[in-house]
Design a protein around this nucleic acid. Structure first.
Length: 579
RNA sequence: GCCGAGAUAGCUCAAUUGGCAGAGCAAUCCCUUCGUAAGGGAUAGGUUCUGGGUUCAAUUCCCAGUCUCGGCUCCA
């Protein structure tokens, strides 16, 4: 109940923006917009006017005027005919009225004062003075009705809260979130970089690659236990194989085409996914039901030529690594295998302390391969597993892969944007395309079912989420530098080197800072680099043969023997715990 | 790809109506040898994203391109 005033306020604020815009830019047309979790947005057809954030002070001032004018907001149900007349020059409202008319409803409009009217059922506040503090946030392009075939409109985002304090808090939260941006931290911690020489692709620096390799190491551990067999397939395959799987029909414009030196037209392509290669391994010999469920995994580097505007740091590069696997099984094995993969995903998220934002089940898209019956069956099994495991999820109608329904796990970045990470896809179509077979108990030949699945999704993307989740302060097992040794003066550097050698022998990633800085300065640097353990060594430690341990975040543990310290670090690493 | 914004030293940013390119941090060297988040000094560091144009003169104005950012669309 308490939410209503906030929602009404934001809705009304959105219309105040519209009213201000129409006054300042008489040629523009209003389209539509909703209240959001922090405020509102509204889409305009700007005509020939260019609106940028530089115009915000002017717009905000006009909005203030409307709010101070105390305009009463009145709701009115009117006839279609009357509504059409009211919005006679606005094709967007007319289109909307078409829909209302088709549903045999009556349009609801509201008046703010005598001059401003818009098509909206609210809820709204009773007059404009009831609108709380607001701030315009950004201007963006957005297609009318979210369809790229339509005209691009100008969208203005704004925040609106009940009190100035809440608004300030929200704006501060946005600032803080920007500090966690993986692109910023990646630069600061020397994890990776981007260069115009390879737009949209990641250059992994030594420290970033350490984390990637640790993620892969962990992946191998858990998958080996689950019976997955790791393989590797070629980076470039023939055009014919991509035709066979149907990928050229659906994604040709995003594939990197390759022309071998002996031909004129492209005849091969860099793999955009690993399935085709995996299936060729499956087909390499006759398969038996006894091998099932056959789980073939591949850490595969794939390339997709994403449009420039779709790139987003390591969360969406053009070259990325999938922790892929394909499970070949009998129809009876689908359910337990689906459950197994879902459990594995949740286990992995638990290891990293990640919270799932939501799970989405996507069903048959308009453009797809396979029969109705097969699709219905596949979707049924997926729904059933989710129901039996009582896992909350949302259904995305017609959003599945072209060969089967999919279950996606979405995680949030620091700004609350969500990213698909794990995905599980049920596929009856590709085994058909590739004529996959197995010998049954009865000695007959049957088509196996194929489950495509990734747990991290893209290792790059997963790391991006982790960087933002931890704000760069990785648990010890993932930290590129796990221990920084700081000798107090040059005299103690020799002892520090001995400690360093000892740690390296134990495969601990350690460094020594023997610069001519003060101890404080060196500690500051190590803290800024988010190094989990700092060992300070001076006269006392040399004499007592100890190390003085400081944990990341000003937690000084004091002096202890190196072996005791090692014991603690090894437990941190073994338990993959955050300190 | 589309709409909007931006690109200046390794990093973060400054530079008046167009008039010799600047700071802090980092780096290098020197001094200091220091006990838990910044000791002091000196030096070096630039195709002001690229290519055109306007001008006596362009980091600044105009055009084109590249890359990046915020969204939209897309994501096998």
């Amino acid at each position: 109940m308490k939410k209503l005033p906030l929602l009404a306020m934001r809705h009304s604020c959105e219309h105040v923006l519209t009213q201000a815009m129409l006054k300042l830019y008489p040629g523009i047309k209003m389209a539509m917009g909703p209240a959001t979790e922090e405020g509102f947005y509204f889409d305009f057809d700007p005509g020939k006017v260019k609106i940028s954030e530089a115009d915000f002070p002017k717009i905000e001032k006009e909005m203030q005027k409307i709010i101070r004018a105390n305009l009463p907001i009145k709701r009115e149900k009117i006839s279609i005919k009357k509504a059409r007349k009211l919005f006679k020059d606005n094709q967007y409202k007319q289109e909307w009225l078409d829909e209302i008319e088709a549903k045999k409803q009556k349009p609801i409009v509201f008046w703010a004062g005598k001059d401003f009217v818009d098509l909206c059922s609210g809820p709204h506040v009773s007059d404009t003075s009831k609108i709380g503090p607001f701030k315009l946030l950004s201007v963006a392009g957005a297609y009318w009705r979210g369809d790229e075939k339509n005209k691009m409109l100008t969208r203005i985002y704004g925040a609106c809260f009940s009190t100035q304090k809440e608004l300030d808090q929200y704006l501060k939260m946005l600032e803080e979130a920007k500090k966690r941006d993986h692109r910023k931290i990646g630069k600061e911690l020397n994890l990776f970089s981007f260069h115009p020489e390879a737009p949209g692709d990641v250059f992994w620096h030594h420290k970033g690659l350490i984390i990637i390799n640790e993620l892969i190491k962990y992946w191998r551990e858990i998958h080996q236990k689950e019976g997955y067999l790791e393989v590797r397939t070629p980076e470039i395959l023939t055009k014919e194989v991509w035709n066979r799987s149907g990928h050229t029909d659906y994604f040709i414009e995003k594939m990197y085409k390759v022309t071998t030196p002996d031909v004129k037209e492209w005849n091969m392509a860099i793999k955009p996914m690993n399935c085709d290669g995996g299936m060729l391994i499956y087909k390499n010999r006759l398969r038996s039901y006894k091998e099932f469920p056959l789980k073939i995994g591949e850490i595969g580097v794939v390339h997709r030529y994403e449009s420039s505007g779709e790139l987003h740091g390591i969360l969406r590069p053009r070259e990325f690594t999938q922790d892929d696997a394909h499970i070949y099984c009998t129809p009876d094995q689908i359910k337990p295998e689906l459950e197994g993969v879902i459990n594995l995903c949740f286990r992995v998220y638990k290891t990293f302390g990640l919270e799932l934002d939501r799970l989405e089940l996507s069903t048959r898209p308009e453009k797809s391969i396979g029969s109705d019956e097969v699709w219905e069956n596949a979707e049924k099994i997926m729904r059933q597993v989710l129901k039996e495991k009582d896992i909350p999820h949302q259904i995305n109608e017609r959003e599945g892969a072209f060969y089967g329904p999919k279950l996606d796990f979405h995680l949030k970045d620091s700004l609350g944007r969500t990213w698909q990470c794990a995905t599980i896809q049920l596929d009856f179509a590709q085994p058909e395309n590739f004529n996959l077979e197995y010998i049954t108990e009865k000695g007959t030949k049957e088509r196996p079912v194929m489950i495509h699945r990734v747990v991290y999704g893209s290792i790059e993307r997963f790391l991006g989420i982790l960087v933002e989740e931890y704000a760069g302060a990785f648990p010890v097992w993932l930290s590129p530098v796990q221990v920084m040794i700081i000798p107090i003066t040059k005299r103690h550097a020799g002892y520090g080197i001995k400690i360093l050698e000892e740690l390296k022998k134990q495969e601990i990633r350690a460094e020594l800072n023997d610069k001519n800085d003060t101890t404080s300065a060196k500690i500051r640097e190590a803290e800024l680099q988010k190094i989990p353990y700092i060992l300070v060594v001076g006269d006392k430690e040399v004499k007592a043969k100890t190390v003085n341990v400081r944990m990341r975040g000003e937690k000084v543990l004091g002096s202890m023997s190196l072996s005791k310290f090692l014991q603690q670090v090894n437990i941190d690493i073994a338990k993959k715990r955050q300190i």
